[in-house]
Simulated assay, not measured.
Amino acid sequence: MSKSDGYKDRGITGFLAQGRQIQEGDGSFTVTIPKALAMEWEIEHGDNLLFTASEGDDKATIHKPGSEGGFSLGVSDD
């Protein structure tokens, strides 16, 4: 894809804003993330994303796995 499509070889160029449709199934909701964001953050299958929001907010924040403000899960050696 060209840079004008919001993508580059490894993620986002400039600013990315895209809408996503919510899917429903098996008692849960699913939303996909843009491929450019997954590439930018090097997200892999099984990674966890932290979503934060406060009561009454009209927006939420998604945190990159392992980032400050985000979190990462690991398996204990115990």
Rank of each mutant, 00 (worst) to 15 (best):
M1V: 10
M1S: 07
M1F: 08
S2H: 10
S2E: 12
S2F: 14
K3Y: 07
K3S: 05
S4M: 08
S4V: 09
D5S: 14
D5Y: 10
D5C: 05
D5E: 09
G6F: 11
Y7H: 06
K8D: 05
K8E: 03
D9N: 13
D9F: 12
D9M: 11
R10W: 05
T13V: 15
G14D: 11
G14T: 12
F15Q: 13
L16N: 06
A17G: 05
A17I: 09
A17V: 11
A17D: 04
G19M: 02
G19W: 01
R20F: 07
I22N: 06
I22K: 15
E24R: 12
E24T: 13
D26I: 02
S28P: 00
S28V: 13
S28M: 08
S28C: 05
F29D: 00
F29Q: 12
F29H: 11
T30G: 04
V31K: 07
T32G: 15
I33D: 03
I33Y: 10
A36M: 09
A36S: 14
A36Y: 07
A36I: 11
A38P: 01
M39G: 00
M39T: 02
W41R: 04
E42I: 06
E42Y: 02
I43F: 10
I43C: 12
I43G: 02
G46I: 07
G46F: 11
G46D: 12
D47C: 10
D47N: 15
N48I: 11
N48P: 00
L49M: 10
L50C: 02
F51H: 01
A53Q: 07
E55L: 15
D57Y: 11
D57E: 14
K59R: 09
A60F: 15
A60Y: 06
T61A: 05
I62K: 06
K64L: 03
P65Y: 09
S67G: 01
E68C: 09
G70K: 10
F71Q: 02
F71L: 14
F71N: 00
L73S: 01
L73P: 00
G74L: 05
G74H: 04
D77F: 09
D77T: 14
D78R: 15
